[in-house]
Simulated scan of single mutants.
Amino acid sequence: MGEGRPRMLGGVVDCVACGAPGGGAECQELFERLLALDHARREPWGSLHGVVVACFLLQHPGHPLAGAGDHGPWWAMLRAYLDGGREGLGALTETMRRRNSHRRRGRPQWPAVPALPERAAPDGFGVTIADVAVDGSFPADGYEDRVRAWAKSTLAARSGDPTG
């Protein structure tokens, strides 16, 4: 569960970041499996790469890829996906591509979205990478529904708003 407060379930320590059974090493292994599926660019995994990375890093803020910088882009990605589905996510991606033109100087600015609330990390999340993985294989059947639930759970827990 929450940082520094592992929970025991059947003799297995849960991940201190997200609360998933099996601990942080299990979450990292699942994340690596998921990235391999994403990078194969096969459906249904590839097109949701940004969403699952955002979910994982918002639930594991201590992960080396999370960095200490602005997490607003991940927040924007989840909001775009939850508010507009794949179309909303595609529109955000296209906007960012245009803003990342070689003709522009500096870092591209993300579209305006509500700021990621400044609050303590939640004690756990209703849906974690372990739930999306099901049996560890991230089965295609129902994958997008599980990712949507993960995104909604992540936003709800991070914002303190149960509706996300």
Rank of each mutant, 00 (worst) to 15 (best):
P122R: 05
R7S: 09
N100C: 09
R86P: 09
Y143F: 15
A80M: 07
V16A: 12
S137N: 11
R104P: 04
V132H: 06
D38R: 02
H102I: 13
P122G: 08
S159K: 06
G2W: 11
M77Y: 07
D135R: 06
L89N: 06
D14S: 12
P21F: 03
V52W: 11
G106E: 08
M1I: 10
G106N: 11
A68S: 14
S47R: 14
G106V: 10
V113L: 07
G23P: 08
G160T: 04
P117A: 05
G164S: 15
E144A: 07
D83E: 12
P108N: 05
G136A: 04
W45Y: 14
P139C: 01
V52M: 11
G24V: 08
R146M: 02
L116R: 10
G126K: 07
A68V: 15
P111M: 10
G10R: 04
P6T: 01
A130E: 09
V127N: 06
L58G: 04
V53P: 01
G69E: 13
F56N: 01
K152I: 06
M96S: 11
A156Y: 10
A25D: 11
V13P: 15
A76K: 13
D123G: 15
A157R: 02
V52A: 02
R42P: 03
A80C: 08
V147L: 03
R107H: 15
L58S: 02
R86H: 15
A68P: 06
R98S: 10
A140V: 08
L92P: 07
D123R: 11
R146F: 01
P139I: 03
D70R: 14
A91C: 07
W45A: 02
T154L: 02
P111R: 08
T93Q: 14
K152Y: 06
L35Y: 01
H102K: 10
A66K: 05
A157K: 09
